[in-house]
Design a protein around this nucleic acid. Sequence first.
DNA 1: CTAGAAACAGTCCAAGCGTACGGTATCTCT
DNA 2: AGAGATACCGTACGCTTGGACTGTTTCTAG
Lengths: 201, 201
Amino acid sequence: MTAKPGRRTQEERRATTRAKLLEAAAACLLERGYAATTVSEVQERAGVARGTLLHHFPTKVELMVAATEHVVDQRVEQFRLAAAEIPADEDRLDALVDLAWRDLSSPVFFTAMELWMAARTDAELRSAVLVLEERLFQRMRESYASVLDDQAGDLAVPLEFTIDVLTGLSITAMLSGKLGPRQPLLDKWKQALRLLVEGQS
Amino acid sequence: MTAKPGRRTQEERRATTRAKLLEAAAACLLERGYAATTVSEVQERAGVARGTLLHHFPTKVELMVAATEHVVDQRVEQFRLAAAEIPADEDRLDALVDLAWRDLSSPVFFTAMELWMAARTDAELRSAVLVLEERLFQRMRESYASVLDDQAGDLAVPLEFTIDVLTGLSITAMLSGKLGPRQPLLDKWKQALRLLVEGQS
DNA sequence: CTAGAAACAGTCCAAGCGTACGGTATCTCT
DNA sequence: AGAGATACCGTACGCTTGGACTGTTTCTAG
């Protein structure tokens, strides 16, 4: 029964601080990259004291693992929201492509990429990321399937191709920042996808 | 005119040492990742003295830039060799997919990815990588076009899709190390690619 | 009111990067 | 061919920063 403002329960205090830390870590990963992300900077960005971070995450890897989980949850959540906003009268395949592109070109995606790349060579981080990847892919596929009305999984292969194409597109356009002449490719892929779906049935 | 073995010109000495350093840097990037790559370890792996590395590359970024160039050249070279080995009687589209996959799942590709990701948040490295990326893509497209006998560029779009699909495939399978259920996708993409090429003409 | 949890502040140790300097091999000019 | 100039190699050092630790204070819960 803590109604007084500024009077929060322990769990609330812990949660808000933890959230601030994870948000700061994610922002740092996005702006500075994994290599330049230090616990000191995360601590400063979060506006907490030195020992506070240690209290929540004894080691840097534990912070990174938690940050990964946070980022994954963000991606899943953004994805669900975007999927829910799709108008019912829109073409399902076009909607799928737009939905996937919104995810795969978003800042959260690049933040996740930083962690994924780091996990490749860091055993501890890697084992944690692997199970989170499983969860992420699972949830994503569910949302995709709901957009397509494809419970049977008949469109699994074209879906996989769509994800991979857009992933590749996002990566290859990462540095220049702009899609450049690849922008029309999104529309072209919509056509191609339709062709593939018709062709396989 | 230095014919005596063990008697090398300055330029030769410089070149071999430089090559050893770049090779060591690339190996370190692949095994440890960018974040854990230190100049000390590169120096140890190369088997040279501390100041030697510094004489060639005064700063770490300069070393990384040179390493990027080295890795890019390796990719281009491996690519040309692989392209030359393709038997004349093989289906051109199938050959294209295999060729692209050999590149995009190779160790050199992941080494390059480390540098690409690092370049995203490092201004100095980024500007260097951007011009190298231009060169890389240019050369790659030339080789691809030669495999396809497509000087006119009619197959540019399906080619782009192929590269992006396989890039995405490689990335999403990066952590688990094995393609898993995605292995058959390579064959499925060959079919899809054929469909796309026929469909657009 | 007291026990325990959370947040704060200051510090230690190790490692990384960059600098300085002496020694040695190679090139070049006469 | 010899001597000076140039370029390269190797070692030792200092500055800075990152990551992990300990003690103290504030706040919540019973």
